[in-house]
Simulated assay, not measured.
Amino acid sequence: MTVPIISAYAAAILIMMQGLLMVLVGLHRAKSGVNLGVGGDLALERKIRRHGNLAENAALFIVVLALAEMTVVPASVISVIAIIFVIARALHAIAMSTEVGSHGGEGSKFFVAARVLGAFGTLGSFLALGGFLLVNLL
């Protein structure tokens, strides 16, 4: 069994992203005085969803990535999937920082594209990782 060093690198980047997004939610709450929920504040809602969406996806991804890395999936495959996932989560967080990216308002379609790429990159990473792990275990 190998030490999951690629997973550790990906986890380090993702935990720093998670911490930054958490701080941004806390700062917004302090500034707006909204202690629970969103209080009708769309900007706060976006920040909460950015933070929550990363938390929903990153933890499970890192666990499965580490299992794949410690068992049978080649390091090159692990690296590519990890890079795609980290980029996808960054794109999603960037997209969710704007109203057009989160609620479909008027503005640059870059943020809409970033959200779509982030979502599909995440899904693709999940499917590729699960598929490689399952096929290699069989």
Rank of each mutant, 00 (worst) to 15 (best):
V112L: 10
I62P: 07
H51F: 14
I87S: 01
R29E: 08
I15S: 10
A93Y: 00
L65T: 00
A12M: 15
L44I: 05
G124L: 13
G105L: 13
V116M: 05
A68M: 11
L21C: 06
A119I: 09
L65G: 05
E106P: 11
A95F: 00
G37K: 14
G37E: 12
N35G: 15
A113N: 13
F126T: 01
G121Y: 03
I13T: 08
L65I: 03
G33Q: 06
N53R: 06
L65S: 05
A55W: 02
R29Q: 11
Y9W: 12
L36F: 15
F111S: 02
V100P: 00
G33M: 13
F126G: 06
A11F: 10
V25D: 04
S97H: 01
G131V: 05
M16C: 14
H92I: 04
F110D: 03
V112E: 01
A12Y: 07
A93R: 01
G107S: 09
A90P: 06
E106K: 15
P74G: 11
A8T: 15
R115E: 00
S102G: 14
L20G: 11
A8I: 15
A88I: 03
E45G: 09
G26P: 03
A93M: 00
S108A: 13
K109S: 10
M16T: 13
F120N: 13
V38C: 11
L117R: 03
K31L: 14
G118T: 05
V73H: 08
G107E: 10
F120Q: 14
V25E: 07
L24V: 05
A90Y: 04
